[in-house]
């Protein structure tokens, strides 16, 4: 049997309504060619898995149920990612720490205020205007607009934020689309049916 002949027979076999309880057994000729042909074999194997269905069920990682039980019992946050220490620190903040932009601003006659410069970058190639709005700028979309100087669709801005505080924010695109940071691990309800991203630095 050639691969072309096999493909035709393969299609005829799959045309049975196997999702309706029919269980068409695979013709021996299809199996014979499929098992000896590196081009047709994987397609046959995939079809057999889909027809039978159940073999495509996948076992969870070892100990997953136990970890969930333990977490629920302890009342702790359920997340158990290996990178748990990073949870709560959105990517923007991490970037800053990585780059080491730690600033200490001192006002005359006042105690030192530690700030960290956070660089926000947003990939939005279709946007005409992007702002970051948060509790640090009283949610004013006019104060901190991102720029895309090289026209690559990545909008950016660097903003000094107080260290040790929780900052909530969203992006505002073209003055009408409010978007929480899709990468932020922490989000809270904004009271208007949406969510704010949370940045803890």
């Amino acid at each position: 049997m050639t691969c072309e002949q096999w493909s035709e027979e393969f299609k005829q076999w799959l045309d049975h309504d196997w999702t309706n309880g029919d269980d068409p057994s695979c013709p021996p000729s299809l199996r014979q060619h499929g098992e000896s042909c590196s081009r047709c074999g994987p397609r046959l194997q995939a079809a057999l898995l889909l027809v039978e269905g159940k073999p495509l069920n996948r076992q969870p990682p070892f100990g997953l149920a136990e970890r969930i039980v333990e977490r629920l019992a302890s009342g702790a946050p359920i997340r158990s990612k290996a990178w748990l220490p990073w949870v709560g620190i959105p990517a923007a903040a991490l970037l800053l720490v990585a780059l080491g932009f730690l600033l200490v601003l001192r006002a005359p006659g006042r105690s030192a205020v530690e700030t960290i410069v956070v660089r926000f970058e947003l990939q939005a190639p279709d946007a005409r205007e992007v702002s970051v709005v948060g509790n640090w700028n009283q949610w004013n979309p006019e104060t901190q607009k991102l720029k895309d100087p090289d026209g690559d669709g990545v909008w950016e801005i660097e903003i000094p934020l107080k260290k040790g505080e929780e900052h909530q924010y969203q992006f505002l695109i073209d003055g009408e689309n409010w978007i929480p940071d899709p990468e932020a691990p922490l989000q809270v309800e904004d009271g208007f049916g949406g969510v704010n991203s949370v940045l803890q630095i």
Binding site: P90, A98, L122, I179, E183
Partner: peptide, 15 residues
């Protein structure tokens, strides 16, 4: 949505 909108930060992602 993430594929269109995301904070880009290659360093933390590597970590």
């Amino acid at each position: 949505r993430r594929s269109r909108l995301r904070i880009v930060s290659s360093e933390p992602e590597r970590i």
